[in-house]
């Protein structure tokens, strides 16, 4: 099982992801330079947070044309797992691999703090170790995390279970009071219709050690590991 962390010019959470996966969780992980198109046999690709291409034009708008994104697109078509975190989420939206867009935060400011997330769908490769409705405490750090999708499209997304995380209160209350950035329906993370691609604004890689205040982020990475392992065993049996 191997993770690949894509490095764009301006990525700055790439080492955090690499460290969380290798040093904290003991996984095989490699960096993938954005100009390469070889995914080195990775089972899961992570698009990390940061400011790819300086956020020029729109966040993620230029990164989507990096050579590696062609390979990532093919990887998705073959059913590979892709997780976009923060700027990685923005890149997935600009690439059209996930629906919607991210606008500047409602209050016009950069927000960096812990938030609570409610797991809306625990039946995805990224949340299979969570229980439905479980509350995770994971930090956000962004200026443009205000998820936008026209209401009718959001309804379809919700119906299909593609809304994976919502911002909530400590008891799981989903309300405007616990919406940090103005996202429609408190949406914090969504998945593609086949659940192989997920994007989220909160940073699970920053919540993998007690000393950092939470280990809830581990659940997301370990879900991926558990899901891939199960898939491998299923593959052996058939």
């Amino acid at each position: 099982m191997r993770f690949g962390v894509v490095v764009f010019p301006g990525s700055n959470c790439d080492y955090d992801c690499f460290y969380a996966l290798r040093d904290v969780l003991g996984q095989d992980v490699v960096f993938l330079w954005h100009k390469n198109t070889d995914l080195q046999g990775c089972d899961c690709i992570i698009l990390p947070g940061g400011f790819s291409y300086g956020d020029y034009l729109r966040t993620g708008a230029i990164a989507r044309f990096s050579p590696i994104m062609e390979a990532v697109r093919d990887f998705v078509l073959q059913g590979g797992l892709v997780l976009g975190i923060c700027n990685g989420f923005q890149i997935l939206l600009e690439s059209g691999l996930l629906p919607g867009a991210l606008l500047p935060n409602r209050n016009g400011r950069f927000i960096c703090r812990y938030v609570y997330l409610r797991v809306e769908n625990a039946n995805t490769p990224f949340t299979c170790l969570c229980t439905p409705g479980e509350i995770l405490r994971i930090p956000i750090a962004h200026y443009q995390g205000n998820f936008f999708l026209p209401q009718d499209e959001l309804g379809i997304l919700t119906e299909r279970g593609q809304v994976v995380f919502r911002y909530c209160g400590p008891q799981g209350e989903v309300s405007e009071a616990y919406n940090p950035n103005g996202s429609v329906g408190n949406v914090a993370g969504i998945a593609s219709s086949d659940f192989r691609v997920m994007g989220m604004m909160p940073h699970p890689e920053r919540a993998c050690e007690e000393i950092l205040g939470s280990v809830d982020g581990r659940k997301i990475f370990l879900s991926i590991v558990a899901w891939l392992e199960e898939k491998r065993y299923a593959g052996c049996g058939s």
Binding site: L103, P104, N105, R106, N107, G108, N146, F148, G182
Partner: peptide, 9 residues
């Protein structure tokens, strides 16, 4: 209908 915080500020 798309919120414009810069415009507002």
């Amino acid at each position: 209908g798309v919120f414009d915080p810069q415009g507002m500020t």
